[in-house]
Amino acid sequence: MIGLNWLAPYDFSPATILGYVLVLGFYGYGLLKMPEDNRPGSGRILVFVVGVMLCYGVMQTRFDYYSQYMFFIHRGQHLILHHLGPLLIALSNPLPVMQFLYSRIKPGIRRALSPLGWIYRFLQHPAVASFLFVGLIYFWLWPPIHFNAMLSRDLYWIMNWSMLLDGLLFWWLILDPRSPVSGNALGYGKRILLLALVAVPQIILGATIVFSQGMVYDVYEVCGRAWPMAPETDQLLGGLITWIPPAMMSILGILIILRRAMREDGKAFPYSEKLKATHS
């Protein structure tokens, strides 16, 4: 019973559950139906599913309750929605599955979906993507906005979904498996630069929260905490979670990109060339 209580959503959202079911459903369908030589291996499938389920877990289990009433757990929730979950999903390289699913869409519907492509290309402009990535963190942590977001159920959902979608866009831009040598993907140097650039404002924000004297986010005081904890401790932990893990994830991202760049150095045919060739 206790286990069931923990897994049950605190704020049941049919749309959210439907979204996750559709993502996993389409992914599973693609895996089963796609040609075997393109199918991701079990490791990649596992990484994808873990990424998706982590995001689901912080949105639709008891974790969400604690995120609403403890600042530092809320920061942990956003760390997963905006960083860790999307990073794992992008790292698992679901591109072949997505390309297969796309090939199954009827041409008429594909044309109707083309405006989405324009929006996508606009959002994936490096300047827009990095501005949004850092801007959203600052926006939702701006004290008056944060207060409202924690008071309003609608705003709260918009906040969490916007963080997740933006996280997916950003980490997909960074970890795009297509090679910049042979395609339109962002160059490795630019990817590394972006990762370094977005880390700086996050470090500043986290440090500001950690070292602030008074209470920056009093909504947790006003609306009651999940359990009695000194407000200063809660804020300090929240600040540290805003500060250190995202900076570490930028480093991790840089290392992954460096490894790819080094593997492609001096190769006439980059390793991702095969992937592209089969779908052009």
Partner: peptide, 26 residues
């Protein structure tokens, strides 16, 4: 309390059975 985005919780009772309750101050 959920409707108004707040919560409450009970501390463990002491020897006399008294316990504190955390709740919204708003």
């Amino acid at each position: 309390s959920k409707r108004y985005r707040t919560t409450f919780g009970y501390d463990d009772p002491d020897a006399e059975g008294n316990y504190n309750v955390s709740h919204s101050g708003a």
